[in-house]
């Protein structure tokens, strides 16, 4: 059962990464326009260079 000492921290760490990603997404207002973001990925406007 010594493996638990490694596995539990690892699983908690991975879960924590997910949580931090969720916080970041919320801080950068990525849930403000879900429909628009879903459509925006289909446009070709900024395929060649990033939007200035």
């Amino acid at each position: 059962m010594e493996i638990l000492a490694i596995l539990i921290p690892v699983s908690l760490f991975l879960g924590g990464v997910g949580l931090v990603a969720f916080f970041w997404a919320m801080k950068t207002k990525q849930f403000d326009d879900p429909e628009g973001d879903a459509e925006r990925i289909l446009t070709k406007d900024w395929d060649d260079r990033p939007k200035p």
């Binding site: 924590g16 997910g18 949580l19 919320m26 849930f31």
Partner: peptide, 17 residues
């Protein structure tokens, strides 16, 4: 709303673990 959503996210993470 964002505040509630954040707490909801934390609660979900903890609940699963």
């Amino acid at each position: 709303g964002r505040d509630l959503l954040m707490r909801l996210g934390v609660a979900f993470f903890s609940m699963m673990n």
